[in-house]
Nucleic acid binder design. Structure first.
Length: 578
DNA sequence: AATACAAGCGCG
DNA sequence: AAAGCGCGCTTGTATT
């Protein structure tokens, strides 16, 4: 890491038909301006100081070129992502300049092609961004936005947290591009084996696999209707009614409540159809190539700060398919996930020592049981989820009060967040990401319900939308802070992995691309779990880095507060062969 | 023919 | 055994 005074900022943007690189000193004063050809910029830039902090409009727009040219950058500031955080953050007191320029509220360049805004597609709050499709790419736009962001940061009473958040968010953007470039090592053989085991051999010419056909036949026989349609919910529901199953929907948990010969084969049929349509042979053909699955990660794609993804359903890969993630020969996978990330984050951010004590060194739910607050682990789990999600009824809602008595500080934090949301306000995560306040439409609904001639329906609607918002803001502070912890973990781990030596060419994992074929690299991230693809000889070093970065993330966010984040960490056993 | 929506299910 | 947060994707149906 370079000391703050030595940071060199490299800003990249367009000017006319050229790409322009501008070097700034630590005071953001311009020291050098260089015009390079649009096709050559990445190659020329990659020869420069790799420790510089790159500043660009949108990582997804600029970084893939650098990666393709064989260059990894250590740090960046993603102006689009940082803009989104700063313009909304309640920690920023001077956000007017940021909010004035709606051009920076546009989606990422790399997002799925934005559709033309419809004629009447007006933002209900009249906010900025209407009609603009991507963020500005001009060099002067970037320089101006960087200075606005620096000013906004300086206006914050606590710039340290926001600086952490912006750095973590930007590191995440780098990582998202890198993981797309590297891809998830994917064994088509294993995947096909799972499909064949479950569905039967791949049918020629788009037919129905044998196992699916058998189940369909069994369902139709049980329904007493050889031509019953199983894939249309309304038609299936009518068939069920005729057969004496008075279900209101065709959802799995409702069907499971009925005793009828059709239920078992129908549930099995639905499960197989789901596997086939979502992750079957078509998915393999479409989303894997050269032994890699390359989803598009969308950092900051979820309002809470979590990542979203686009293409291939990377964030929904069924657990049954995980064995298809398979290291290259001579490489291995280091897999880690955090146990009970969100309640641990809640304990730390609320300063709840009792909950932290329940969490320390063990399963958090076991700890709650040991404290005597709740009788069984299963109940402790649904109570905690209910507290963080805002459950009011059922087993979950019934158990929350016990949690409230045992952990008043932690529960007080989420309860307060809920009250803020119910009254239309915005809430903020530990590092300073704020939710949007309620829009004008929401306030109108509340106002109508408070009026003298409000109908029962209007009152009910207002109560419901207030409750919806309360549950959203209740969860936002926890989910959002958990996302921040995960980003800090990723960013630190990324740095540690970069310090590991490269392996010789002949030991490389070629499909990981020019940059990562010889280096341990993150290849998958899902909210609280990661997979690192690593040369076999570095497995232990990588596992150690994964554990150390988790500890460092905890200290970075929560200082000396006594909370730990235990990992379930394993080195894949399948990698040795091959 | 193209598009929007709801249901359902996968993930955390 | 099924209430309560955040997503993406596929299918069938309704709309235009």
């Amino acid at each position: 890491m370079t000391a703050a005074g030595e940071v060199r900022w490299r800003v990249v943007g367009r000017e006319g038909g050229s790409v322009v690189l501008v070097d700034l000193d630590a005071g953001l004063d311009e020291v050098r301006r260089e015009r390079v050809g649009p096709d050559r910029w990445a190659v020329e830039a990659s020869a420069a100081d790799p420790s510089a902090r790159w500043v660009w409009s949108d990582t997804a727009r600029w970084y893939p070129d650098l990666l393709a040219a064989g260059s990894v950058v250590a740090r960046c500031q993603d102006l689009r992502l940082c803009h989104a955080i700063l313009r909304a953050s309640s920690l920023v007191t001077e956000a007017a300049a940021l909010r004035a320029d709606g051009a920076w509220d546009a989606p990422s360049t790399a997002a799925p092609a934005a559709v033309e805004p419809a004629l009447f597609d007006l933002d209900p709050d009249g906010g900025a961004g209407v009609g603009s499709r991507t963020v500005p790419e001009g060099i002067d736009d970037a320089l101006a936005e960087l200075r606005r962001q620096a000013a906004a940061l300086a206006s914050s009473g606590d710039p340290g947290r926001l600086r952490l958040l912006l750095a973590a968010e930007s590191a995440g953007a780098l990582l998202a591009a890198e993981m797309h470039a590297a891809g998830v090592p994917w064994s088509i053989e294993v995947h096909e084996g799972i499909l064949e085991q479950a569905l039967g051999p791949r049918p020629a010419g788009g037919g129905v696999p044998a196992r699916v056909q058998e189940l369909a036949d069994a369902v139709r026989a049980a329904l007493g209707d050889g031509r019953a349609s199983l894939d249309s919910q309304p038609k299936l529901l009518r068939s069920l009614h005729r057969a004496g199953v008075p279900a209101r929907s065709t959802s799995r948990w409702e069907l499971a409540e009925y005793e009828h010969p059709v239920i078992e084969p129908l549930l099995a049929y639905k499960k197989l159809m789901r596997l086939m349509t979502a992750n079957g042979w078509t998915w393999l053909d479409e989303w894997t190539a050269g032994g890699r699955f390359r989803p598009v990660y969308v950092p900051g794609g979820v309002v809470t700060g979590r990542w979203a993804s686009s293409g291939g359903g990377a964030l929904q890969l069924p657990r049954a398919l995980r064995p298809a993630v398979h290291a290259d020969p001579g490489w291995t996978l280091v897999v880690a996930d955090v146990a009970q990330l969100e309640p641990r984050v809640l304990a730390a951010m609320s300063g709840d020592l009792a909950l932290a004590e329940a969490a320390r060194g063990r399963d958090l739910y076991d700890g709650i049981v040991a404290s005597g607050a709740i009788a069984t682990r299963a109940e402790a789990k649904i109570a905690m989820l209910g507290a963080m999600y805002g459950a009011t009824t059922g087993d979950s809602g019934r158990l929350v009060p016990a949690l409230r008595r045992a952990y008043p500080r932690a529960m007080g934090l989420v309860d307060a967040a809920a009250r803020t949301g119910e009254s239309g306000g915005a809430v903020t995560t530990w590092l300073g990401r704020s939710s949007a306040p309620a829009g004008s439409e929401w306030h109108e609904v509340q106002a109508r319900a408070g009026g003298p001639d409000a109908s029962d329906a209007e009152c009910a609607q207002a109560r419901r939308s207030a409750g919806d918002r309360g549950r959203f803001t209740r969860n936002f502070v926890v989910q959002g802070t958990a996302a921040e912890w995960a980003l800090a973990w990723l960013a630190d781990l990324r740095g540690l992995l970069a310090e590991l030596p490269a392996v010789p060419v002949e030991q490389g994992a070629e499909a990981s691309g020019p940059v990562f074929s010889r280096r341990a690299h993150l290849c998958f991230f899902l909210h609280d779990e990661i997979i690192v693809h690593a040369p076999l000889a570095q497995a232990e070093a990588v596992a150690d880095a994964v554990a150390r970065s988790a500890e460092r993330a905890a200290r970075l966010l929560f200082g000396g507060f006594p909370i730990d984040f235990p990992l379930d960490l394993r080195i894949s056993i399948d990698a040795a062969k091959g």
